[in-house]
Design a protein around this nucleic acid. Structure first.
Lengths: 234, 234
DNA sequence: TGTACATCAGTGAACGCGCGTTCACTGATGTAC
DNA sequence: TGTACATCAGTGAACGCGCGTTCACTGATGTAC
């Protein structure tokens, strides 16, 4: 149906309107948050009658799902582009580039960040469609880990014991991502990755308010430290 | 007015009803999330007419504020109790006790956790009243840092450069908390603290779904590793 | 190229719902003397 | 201890609002021959 380029005028108009609906919805999201997102408000701003939106999205939740997928893809693309721009640099620099790119996207789109990394929207259950989109950004990081190990920039050091249950999960992750990285480095990677999103969430959700004032500098300093930990385990 | 014990029957009934309202609201929060919390639904479950609730909370937002403060205090109390039970143990064990207690509280009260550490509730602006409550839990951690440095269990190691702007914020934090800990250890502490909440948020908000299966074990392993980093910087 | 029919986009009205908040009221509880 | 008045809790009706979703409809666009 919608594979390839749109053939007819109708198809093209439809694709444009679909995007316009999403753009308006994103804007309203940015003003009021996810649970205040309403089809009627979108229709109003579009200059259409509310029932017309149903020609494009069968329900409010489907619109929300589309926004969620778009948001996941936007972070992923931001990370991928940063990674590519820095691809000739070392692992530490690439890590910083990725971390900065993700944070900058989040700061520029706080409600979209909240939509995907904040509390789940009440009454909404994410369908499976969102899974591949959500995984995409972490693959950027996993590839960085693999590169770092291959180049020797990530020092493996003395192995630490990993619980059996976690080893199984890590093995599954290696299979899915086709990235061969040892348990120990995956565990280290998880710490740094968690740190990154914890940091952004703290900043955006107000937990550093009146504690830290220069968010940019603080983020930069902590991420540099995290990068060192990633590379050397210290 | 309400200083000390309630004097009259009316006062006692009022205090009980206020608590009951909060309890019902908390339960509804747990079922539907914060933005679905409604005074009318609470009144319905109370068996009262909706306007009666206004005798207890002047608006929906005030009820929400009360829940937020209660939630902050509940995590703080959980952390404090864990800390006290482990107060004779070493810093590593105390850190683990605190981390576990906070996570267990979060897992037991996911919507209350989301209320305070997830995305802000749309259309709601937290009043200043919530600030002291929100800070309480981190003071537990700051005191642990100070104890660890005093006892030598936290190794200071070679100092690392801290940006001037961050040094100023850290100084203010030392003043507010009356905890004397060096910039370097504060920075390290921030990393570990961020890691803890990042981890809990990842788990509760579904970002480890189908990746990690044994959350308990994973959390335990990562927090042990974080504890080592806290103590030794490695 | 032209016509006949099928598909689709957008309209407008309607259904049923729940929400926050206000207000004048009744009856019970508390207080001052 | 008893009475008169003030305070307070809860009622019931109402205001005005916005929401998601359905449905029969009109008119425009696309397709097959």
């Amino acid at each position: 149906m919608n594979d390839g380029a749109p053939r007819t005028v109708r198809d093209r108009v439809r694709a444009e309107l679909t995007n316009e609906i999403k753009a308006i919805a994103r804007r309203q999201l940015a003003q009021e948050g996810a649970s205040a997102l309403s089809l009627r408000a979108v229709a109003r701003e579009l200059g259409m009658v509310s029932s017309a939106v149903y020609r494009y999205f069968p329900s409010r939740d489907d619109l929300l799902t589309a926004l969620i997928i778009d948001a996941y893809e936007a972070v992923a693309i931001a990370a991928e582009q940063a990674e590519q721009s820095a691809s000739r640099a070392g692992v530490a620099a690439r890590w910083l580039a990725i971390a900065r790119a993700i944070r900058l996207w989040a700061v520029a789109h706080p409600h979209e960040y909240a939509l995907i990394y904040g509390s789940p929207v009440p009454g909404y259950r994410a369908p499976v469609d969102t899974v591949p989109a959500s995984a995409r950004v972490s693959f950027v990081f996993l590839r960085l880990l693999a590169d770092g190990v291959a180049s020797g920039e990530i020092e493996v050091g003395e192995p630490m014991p990993i619980p059996r249950a976690i080893h199984a999960d890590f093995t599954a992750l290696r299979d899915q991502s086709a990235v061969e990285v040892s348990d120990q480095i995956l565990a280290r990677g998880f710490m740094v990755w968690t740190e990154l999103f914890g940091m952004i969430s703290f900043e955006l959700f107000g937990h550093l308010h009146n504690v830290i004032h220069d968010y940019d500098t603080f983020f930069e300093a902590q991420m540099r430290r995290a990068g060192r930990f990633l590379a050397t385990g210290t």
